Amino acid sequence: MRGTTLDLTRHVAVMAIVNRTPDSFYDRGATFALDAAIAAGVAAAEEGADIVDVGGVKFAPGPPLPIEHEIERVVPVVRALAPVVAVSVDTFHPEVARAAIDAGASIVNDTTGLRDPAMADVIAEGEAGVVIAHSLAAPRMPHPNPHYDDVVAEVAAFLTDRRDRALGCGIPPERIILDPGHDLNKNTLHSLELTRRLREFAALGSPLLIALSNKDFVGEALGSDRGDRLAGSLAAAVYGVLQGARIVRAHNVRETLDAVRMVEAIAGWREPAFLRHNMPTEEVA
């Protein structure tokens, strides 16, 4: 993806989150200021994040933000971080995606799953990768009481259709990532079932991203407030990796990295950082 390669056969990538929004559901604007956003992205890269995902508009319903304002929010952060780490831009606007790619973004993370047909063309022309996420509603519009006869089958069909759209527009298969969209127009029971059956999404053949971090389904499953969902998020992430997910989008980078690196070590995908316990020691003369 524009000079960035991730081999996910024996590696779980962590995608850090940087929100340049004053009202993000988790950090409540902690990285809205430009210097704070850049510092957060650099810190995530130093901790070991493979990708930093930069967003200027939250998914939740609300009034539209003018496209030029979204560009003003995300492009300076992308430009500052692109020399340091692979950067994705979280947007559903083709104009924002184009500006971010020009600034150095390697991936476009579209939570509407290429709802705007022009988005796929922009990504193909920019030789970027794409995260195709599932959601039902028009961007930033409410969708109360969502209904699915079989949430996994319906989400999988959606992702397959939108992947075909991406392929038809010239995005190579190795640049396509799928995301079932936990909590996006889904209730907690839907998100738990998506998690339980993630192997069915991994079987679709594209790298699978899971965005579980601190989401409401974690809080409702445990009865935990927004600031007390880390343990549940890590448990869900580890379960997801065991079901075939290979990219984990997370707010808590260091803790998530420790969790997925431990999975890699147990699976035999990586060597331990060091070996001391019950190992032979040199005899002292």
Rank of each mutant, 00 (worst) to 15 (best):
A49Q: 07
I38W: 00
A245L: 03
V52Q: 02
V108S: 12
A86W: 11
A49R: 08
P144M: 11
A60I: 11
M119I: 14
E70M: 04
G240W: 07
V108E: 08
I67D: 14
T188Y: 11
A267Y: 09
E72V: 07
A250G: 09
A16S: 00
E220D: 03
L178K: 04
S224F: 14
A133K: 06
T256A: 08
G170K: 07
P66S: 08
S213F: 10
D216A: 15
G129L: 15
T4H: 04
V75Q: 09
T281W: 05
L209T: 01
Y148D: 11
E193F: 08
L136P: 01
A285T: 13
D183P: 02
M279Q: 14
R226A: 13
L230C: 07
S135Y: 11
T21H: 04
H182C: 03
V87K: 06
I107E: 12
L136A: 00
L6E: 06
S233E: 03
I17T: 03
S191A: 10
I38V: 12
P139H: 09
T160D: 14
H69K: 15
Y239D: 15
G227R: 01
D35S: 11
M15D: 07
R229H: 06
I176M: 06
L65D: 14
E46W: 03
V108N: 10
V75A: 06
A37S: 08
A105D: 01
G244K: 02
F274Q: 14
G29L: 04
F217S: 03
V122G: 11
V78W: 10
M141L: 13
A99I: 13
H134I: 03
N109P: 05
D258K: 00
G129R: 10
I51F: 11
I177M: 08
I51E: 11
D23C: 03
A99M: 11
G227E: 15
A265I: 12
E193D: 12
H93L: 14
A203D: 00
R276S: 10
A231T: 01
V152I: 11
P94T: 09
T160C: 13
V238G: 02
V151S: 15
E283M: 07
A33L: 04
T21R: 00
P63A: 13
A221P: 09
G126Y: 13
A40V: 07
A133V: 03
G205V: 00
H11F: 10
